[in-house]
C-alpha cells in the first residue's frame, strides 16, 4: 500500500477546472518529483492533501501524518531556528505547554535539535530564522516538517527561490530523507533536478500526463508539459 494515494482528484476554482482527475501514489522510501507548467494543478494537488484546499471529488489517503514545506518557506523570522522547528509539533501539545516557546517541554526541544541536526543546522539552532540564508531557511522548514514525525513529506516548489547550489542541497536532502523511509513528493520547476527523484510525474491540464522513473521519462515528454505555456508566451 502506498503511503500517499490520490485517486481521481478534481478541483475547480470559480468554475475553472484545475484538477481534472489526478491519480498519484507515493510509496514509503520513494522520492517523486512532480513537474508541470504554471496552472497545471501541481500545488493545488499537494494543498488538497494537507487540507489547505478542499477537493471537489476524489480520494486522498495518507498513511500516518503528512507535513509540508513551501516555496516561500514561511518561517517566523524573529524566532530562532529551534523555536520554528518546535512549532512543527505543536499539534500534540497541551495549551499550557505550547503558548510560548518558554513553555515548550524539554523532550520537544531535544526532538527539534535532532531534526535540525538531520538537516545539518544544529549549530544554528539559536539563531533567528530571518538571519539565515534562503537555503538554510528552507532546511529549517524541512526540520520543522520532520519534527511532526510525518510518514509523508510534501514539498511545494521548495527550491524555486534558491540559488543552484542551495537548491541542489535541498534536493539531495529530500532524496536522503526518502531513502530513510519517508514518502516524499516534491513539486519542481527544474526538470534537471527532477532527475534525482525515483519517479517523475508530469501534470498537464489538471491530470497526470506521464509517470515513470527518470530513465524512462524522455526530454520530449517533459518539454510537452510546457508547450502550451511557451505557445501562450
Amino acid at each position: 500500500m502506498a503511503a500517499l494515494e490520490i485517486r481521481k482528484l478534481t478541483k475547480s476554482f470559480a468554475g475553472r477546472p484545475v484538477l481534472t482527475g489526478v491519480d498519484l501514489q507515493v510509496r514509503a522510501g520513494e522520492f517523486v518529483a512532480v513537474l508541470g507548467a504554471n496552472g497545471s494543478g501541481k500545488s493545488t494537488a499537494l494543498r488538497c492533501v494537507v487540507g489547505l484546499e478542499t477537493p471537489d471529488a476524489g480520494e486522498i489517503h495518507t498513511e500516518g501524518r503528512s507535513a509540508m514545506v513551501f516555496q516561500k518557506i514561511h518561517l517566523v523570522g524573529r524566532r530562532t531556528a529551534l523555536d520554528n522547528v518546535c512549532a512543527g509539533a505543536l499539534g500534540g501539545l497541551p495549551l499550557h505547554r505550547s503558548v510560548s516557546p518558554l513553555l515548550f517541554p524539554r523532550e520537544l526541544r531535544e526532538e527539534a535539535m535532532r531534526c535540525l541536526d538531520r538537516v545539518g543546522l544544529a549549530d544554528r539552532a539559536g539563531e533567528r530564522a530571518g538571519r539565515l540564508s534562503g537555503g538554510q531557511q528552507q532546511r529549517v522548514a524541512i526540520a520543522r516538517a520532520l519534527c511532526r514525525r510525518p510518514r509523508v513529506l510534501l514539498a511545494d516548489e521548495p527550491v524555486s527561490a534558491l540559488d543552484p547550489s542551495a537548491a541542489e542541497q535541498v534536493i539531495t536532502l529530500l532524496a536522503d530523507l526518502a531513502s530513510e523511509g519517508l514518502a516524499v513528493a516534491a513539486v519542481l520547476h527544474q526538470p534537471q533536478l527532477a532527475r534525482s527523484a525515483d519517479r517523475i510525474v508530469g501534470l498537464l491540464g489538471g491530470r497526470v500526463a506521464f509517470d515513470g522513473p527518470p530513465g524512462i521519462v524522455s526530454g520530449s515528454d517533459v518539454d510537452a508539459l510546457y508547450l502550451p505555456e511557451r505557445t501562450a508566451a
Binding site: 494537507v50 487540507g51 489547505l52 501524518r65 503528512s66 507535513a67 509540508m68 513551501f70 514561511h74 518561517l75 512549532a87 512543527g88 509539533a89 505543536l90 499539534g91 500534540g92 501539545l93 495549551l95 505550547s98 503558548v99 522548514a141 520543522r144 516538517a145 511532526r148
Partner: peptide, 13 residues
C-alpha cells in the same frame, strides 16, 4: 499561519 495549521496546530497555537 498555513504552515503551522497543516502541521496540526490549534487556533490559539
Amino acid at each position: 499561519r498555513d504552515a503551522l495549521w497543516v502541521h496540526g496546530a490549534s487556533r490559539v497555537q
